[in-house]
Design a protein around this nucleic acid. Sequence first.
DNA 1: TGACTGCATGTAATCGATTGCAAGACGATC
DNA 2: GATCGTCTTGCAATCGATTACATGCAGTCA
Lengths: 326, 326
Amino acid sequence: MSTATVSRALSRPERVTEATRERVSEAVRVTGYTLNQSARSLRLQSARTILVALPDIGNPFFSTILDAIEREAARRGYGVLVANRFARGDTDPLRDYFLSNRADGLLLLDGSIDRAQLEALTRAPTSLPLIVACEAIADAPFHTVRTDNAYAAEQATRHLLRLGHSRIGHIKGPAGNVLTAEREAGFLAALCSAGAEIRAEWVLHGGFSMDDGARAARTMLDLQERPTAIFATNDEAAIGFISEIARSGLICPRDMSVIGFDDLGIAEHFLPPLTTMRQPREALGRLAAEALIDLIEGAPGKRVPRQFVLSSQLIVRGSTAPPRPR
Amino acid sequence: MSTATVSRALSRPERVTEATRERVSEAVRVTGYTLNQSARSLRLQSARTILVALPDIGNPFFSTILDAIEREAARRGYGVLVANRFARGDTDPLRDYFLSNRADGLLLLDGSIDRAQLEALTRAPTSLPLIVACEAIADAPFHTVRTDNAYAAEQATRHLLRLGHSRIGHIKGPAGNVLTAEREAGFLAALCSAGAEIRAEWVLHGGFSMDDGARAARTMLDLQERPTAIFATNDEAAIGFISEIARSGLICPRDMSVIGFDDLGIAEHFLPPLTTMRQPREALGRLAAEALIDLIEGAPGKRVPRQFVLSSQLIVRGSTAPPRPR
DNA sequence: TGACTGCATGTAATCGATTGCAAGACGATC
DNA sequence: GATCGTCTTGCAATCGATTACATGCAGTCA
């Protein structure tokens, strides 16, 4: 029997006779034959694999999205290759060079990468299928899947305003990140349109980790006058903040309201349960994977940059309350 | 210039003249040439990729380990392919079939997989390099990297005993998981050797999620007589438990001490800060990746199953205290 | 000048699966 | 019995990088 027949028996069983099909199955079982994916990829010019580049797999925010991506990819028969700390590392040409042709497309979750470098990737002749998700620049000429961060930040701040707060602070994200700017803008917009006081010293440098939140808390504790509520750039910063002020005897929400962003799993179970803006992480991951695979499999003509924008949802829990009367 | 020369210029620059090297670099730059990894893999019979199979990427415990694995793999020039919910899914032959030859080895973090199935994988002629990490069976004939769970569980329980508790409960992990049994055994061993009371109703069915911990809390709240301290199978269960009893007005550690397991990032920032057994997650991931790549690159003769056992460390924080005098 | 050494480069086979085309088998129809 | 169509199978080229071996060239020394 020729290898051609075996190949057909495995990939398109209806093209061979019942008898041949069974002989092949039997031989596969006996010899423990496994298909060589490299050879298949080489011949078909497609690895059926996508590369997901993230800033931090260890962060539950990203790992949930990765979960959804992996599920969708598996459903469509694609493998998932991960590259962690994508933008941090030495993005030397060699790295790109060796990465190429191993994956059919790139799903970028890391907003810190240099934009020019990105545009180079998508340019012909390589023309790598690319989706930028989560940390995407709003007006960039790429396919993007993201949430409307500025609007969601505005909503979060409005929630605090509605509760009666007028002295509101913000813990910012890391410098240079796309999201930092958008969320800060939304925060300021809400304060502005409500005519509330904006104090520069209440806009604290922060980051996306709990330690960043704790650091911001220490900065704030040193202030003469403190805000009565805080909009934190994400849940982790919010938690770090709440935890740190607790050491000084300040209790959330009695002494200070805090709202986060993301709705991580911990938010619901934290003490106090965290009020937050829920980002549809599963949907983000699923859509991003879907869009990337469509792009890979679709006709090259279809490649007009499309932008998906999902919306976030206010989840009110116990970490926000009306300000304490003085 | 022949392709052979180009290949040499890129892989072993010292084998060609300075002039040739430069002409090749120039051509690479101009044409945007990228190496075809499939062809390379096919020729060299090695994909320089490992497959990491996990039960749940979204879980911060695993995602931190994955982080360490990815880092070590990248350092040694390997890509990382992830398969989530490995044991859950339909492990039909086709899946294994198409997975094969895409990766040079398997790093299994999922203890729920069928053991017979595993042994089949490692048998000749395929003889897939395999490391079982974290959720490994102690006496299994595989290379393993794990922590001594039973001993660590004993230590955790001893901590509660030392504080003066004698009425101690346990939230178990999911049924069927290797770790569940080991941690329960350590718990019982500690109680036994201390001569403390063991009550079946204080050993609660649980799981690894916060919701599982919350469920266990509800079961416990219904009991006539309650323990004064709880050893939870992991930090998430501990947090879910503490959060849930708080709704009924029970405060940790005043009314009940709780110790967790893992030392997730949140443990330090939770309120109260969580006492826990720290598992060396980075070291686990790094060692596992190291061992797997050694196995892949090493001589086939070297394949005597080796077992790495790391130890956990008691981290005392605020969620455990002496029992309240009655 | 001829033989030899050492180095750079070219030639061609190889890895394993896929697939267009050709050939063969078989039955149906006239 | 010849012709045709249909269905199954085999042949052989192909994907792109690697590498053993062959070739060719320059320099050295007797």
